[in-house]
């Protein structure tokens, strides 16, 4: 700081700007430190690690591209886990979003006791993944569970859901539908924020319900849909607690999610390097899917004119 008598305005202005910047950096310093230590640094380290074979209990050894090659040639489990994860995301995200949007539309119909209904549908979102999974294991219990007993009451035959190869992933999808509270509330808030003039105008034009939904509601909701789909994909690609607690990846690897395979590789089989390589693939998948959606977004996501 220049405090001599010859200071010109320019320098005062500049030093003030500098000082402001320094203050600002001081404010964001925690994030920068945290990023370097716990995110950025580890990401780089993770990439480096993926070229080593490191069991943690023995010194690391350079492995070159072997992990990446094995992943796509010899590790059948990796292929299975990618496929399982992909199927899960492909089924659970669209159905979940439709259900969340449907619920939000229902709640937006000027229902009485809105707060009550909203709470009911939101509640599962605060239940931990582990506790929720355990509740659902018990729901799906072959003889004693409420699912099979309930089906029996209405004359249907149940299944041993979590041990039935073709059904087990569906059973996990159903469990995931239970947790759509957050997207539902986002949709509801977006719906409530929709400008009524648009509908009035549509009424004047004599538009029907369906036309109004597709011409007004859906486009106006598109930013919320976009946001929810992106977040839904990011979280469901990382699904872990459910298969860990409910199925352990079985039966016959039918629920070996990428996250579970990765965890087992790292902490059961101590293949830290290989797990890092897989983690990078997971990162690339998420990155790819997100980028792809941002690409697509320009075609279908409608932003109001005042968007920055």
């Amino acid at each position: 700081m220049n405090t001599t008598g010859f200071t010109v305005h320019n320098t005062i202005w500049r030093s003030r700007r500098l000082r402001d910047a320094l203050v600002a950096y001081a404010f964001i310093l925690p994030w920068i430190i945290g990023f370097v230590l716990f995110v950025g640094g580890p990401i780089v380290a993770s990439f480096g690690l993926s070229f080593f074979r490191w069991k943690m209990i023995a010194p690391p050894r350079f492995y070159g591209l072997t992990h990446y090659i094995n992943m796509f040639t010899s590790d059948e489990l990796f292929r299975i886990s990618i496929w399982v994860t992909f199927k899960f995301v492909l089924i659970s995200v669209p159905i979940g979003q439709i259900l969340a949007l449907g619920l939000a539309l229902l709640l937006n119909q000027r229902v009485v006791m809105l707060g009550f209904w909203r709470s009911v549908f939101y509640l599962p979102a605060v239940v931990s993944g582990v506790a929720g999974s355990i509740i659902w294991v018990w729901m799906y219990h072959n003889e004693l569970g409420i699912v099979n007993n309930g089906l029996q009451l209405i004359g249907l035959e149940g299944r041993n859901w979590l041990f039935d190869r073709p059904m087990v992933l569906g059973a996990l999808v159903v469990k995931s539908l239970w947790n759509i509270g957050i997207p539902m509330v986002i949709y509801l808030a977006a719906l409530q924020g929709l400008p009524q003039q648009l509908y009035e105008a549509a009424d004047i034009d004599g538009a029907g319900e369906g036309a109004k939904f597709f011409a007004i509601t859906l486009p106006m909701l598109s930013p919320a849909i976009f946001f929810n789909v992106v977040m839904g994909i990011i979280t469901s690609v990382q699904t872990f607690a459910e298969p860990y607690v409910m199925t352990g990846g079985g039966p016959d690897n039918a629920t070996l999610f990428l996250g579970l395979h990765l965890y087992q590789s790292a902490f059961h089989f101590l293949k830290m390097g290989y797990a890092s390589a897989m983690a990078w693939i997971m990162f690339l998948i998420i990155f790819g899917l997100t980028a792809f959606q941002f690409r697509l977004a320009s075609r279908w996501v409608y932003y109001e004119g005042d968007a920055r």
Binding site: N142, R159, N160, F163, D164, R165, P166, T247, G248, G249, G250, P251, D252
Partner: peptide, 12 residues
């Protein structure tokens, strides 16, 4: 299709 219970290591 099949309607059976398989024993995984975890089940066991």
């Amino acid at each position: 299709m099949t309607h059976r219970e398989k024993m995984t290591r975890r089940t066991f």
